[in-house]
Design a binder for these strands. Sequence first.
DNA 1: ATGAAAGCGCTAACAG
DNA 2: CTGTTAGCGCTTTCAT
Lengths: 332, 332
Amino acid sequence: MELKQPATVTLAEVAEAAGVGESTVSRVLRNHGSFSGKTRERVMAAVERLGYVPNRIAGTLASTGSRLVAFVIPSLSNIVFPDVLRGASAVLEENRYQAVFSVTDYDPGKEEALAAAMLAWRPAAVMLAGYEHTDGSVKMLRASGCRIVELLDLDGDALDIAVGFSNRAAGRESAAFLLKRGYRRIGYVGHDLNRDTRAGKRFSSFCETLETGGAPLVAREILAGASSVENGRLGLERLLARARGLDAVYFSNDDMALGGYFHCLAEGIAIPSKLAIFGYNGLDIGRAMPQPLSTIRTPRVATGQIAAQLVVANAPPQAVDLGFELIEGATA
Amino acid sequence: MELKQPATVTLAEVAEAAGVGESTVSRVLRNHGSFSGKTRERVMAAVERLGYVPNRIAGTLASTGSRLVAFVIPSLSNIVFPDVLRGASAVLEENRYQAVFSVTDYDPGKEEALAAAMLAWRPAAVMLAGYEHTDGSVKMLRASGCRIVELLDLDGDALDIAVGFSNRAAGRESAAFLLKRGYRRIGYVGHDLNRDTRAGKRFSSFCETLETGGAPLVAREILAGASSVENGRLGLERLLARARGLDAVYFSNDDMALGGYFHCLAEGIAIPSKLAIFGYNGLDIGRAMPQPLSTIRTPRVATGQIAAQLVVANAPPQAVDLGFELIEGATA
DNA sequence: ATGAAAGCGCTAACAG
DNA sequence: CTGTTAGCGCTTTCAT
């Protein structure tokens, strides 16, 4: 049935086989412009028979804009980014856009290099995390003419489109919640803040709010590696060994908080009576814990969706605040 | 300093500015062919001055092969796939390849449609999960002439390259381990097996091994949704409500197992004396639990790395077995 | 060592 | 409604 094709059927061959001109085939395939039903059938039959797969490389070059959307993300380990990609990819697929990605490891220099490589594909948009980019990146992105979307942060000036929420507000509300609950000796366990600037913003506004509330941060433990359950457990262990009498700990992320929770379980530290725990992200896992995790739920998937929708619609420059939700939980 | 560029500097303009021919610029930029040091400097200066970013769409069209690698993955929620992407993307970036992806939601029909869309970009390779593809997908992929890599499964015949491990062996070893430990009344909690065929393979060989061992599966609870901590908790709750006297439960994944663990914690069921728990994947989280999770650690990141390396090297067709590691843990 | 010219496969006017 | 004709921006012979 299926003959071995010469590996690459072109539009010209389809046109020839269907007995029509190339542009007609092009019109039919893109369902754009006008053509008769009969022509359409002939073309589709030829496409089918020859097993023709359009070459979008050629198509993109010939037309103006590409349907590539480039994601330059810090990490794939931090669940935040797969979630954003998930939201975006669903929308992009519906609109026949293709997602391209690369991973910076939270390194701005690498971000610049990868953004440059991405730009070479002339994408319709480049999606980046947050506002902290090198001057070189900014200049290059601005000059590229493609849409720029900054994700998951709203504390800064957007280059073009921004979608997310305020990390500063999240830090503030977390602190306010703990104060309201009556905790006064509060500590912090986090991962590398210089790299994850959004976590850094949460932390600094968290601290400010505590000070304003008259209960400044008692102690902190910053771990070198990435956010992880193991680091959370280790971090809390170290923090408690150093700082006595803490009544609550704020974690940079839910996975860190879960690690802290495990530490308490293992050590028999009663939660929240002896020690309260507060996280960030609102992962599903927090809901399934014996005591639901007190945390802030962030709209990660929605961030991706909205960002993709704005790009597809070629919306004007804007900053979209998706907000977040504080979940009281049972650990604080 | 930076003048507003006409949005799109071309190689021809660089050539003009440098006072050389287009092909010379092309040679210098790709560092291929011969040219004098002086020429090189002139070209690079022009590139710098004009802020030229090569157009890889045009480059790819003009040359033969593209440096795009397409991933058609079932999900981004299941951590397995971000892990694979992570391993692959590091290798691809080093070799100046670009990763493109789309998500099938475990739907073979959607896989076919997305694979077709991917092929339109004429990628160097298409990476897919496992062996279960529609006839249409297989025919199309075969005809495409690009490399095909099937990931995370080795129980079947590879189309071209396969990288992963045997899910059947994993199921078998899990069962053998539980039997060796003396468990005889064993249950199973899993997510949708028709969609996740790899989980299905583990489950069926798990059951076979139990039967051979004279302790056939006592009960199972299959949840409709995706693998998640909440489903694991719910699943175990339901299973225990129906089946009395179980002494061990095998979960389709570590997150499901963690949910089961949480259920036991909440209900005061002693682990492993009253009930043993066994997972699959070897997530970091399992190591941080108060009792390390008994599970099988799979080489997810390595799968991505090796797959990418084989593609970059244009290696001959082959199946690479990366194996897996049984972690005894403390929950079984 | 370097330039000229011919495409790569398609889209986009422009005529008919 | 449909065919012809130029390119899109680059790589690649092939001369020079």
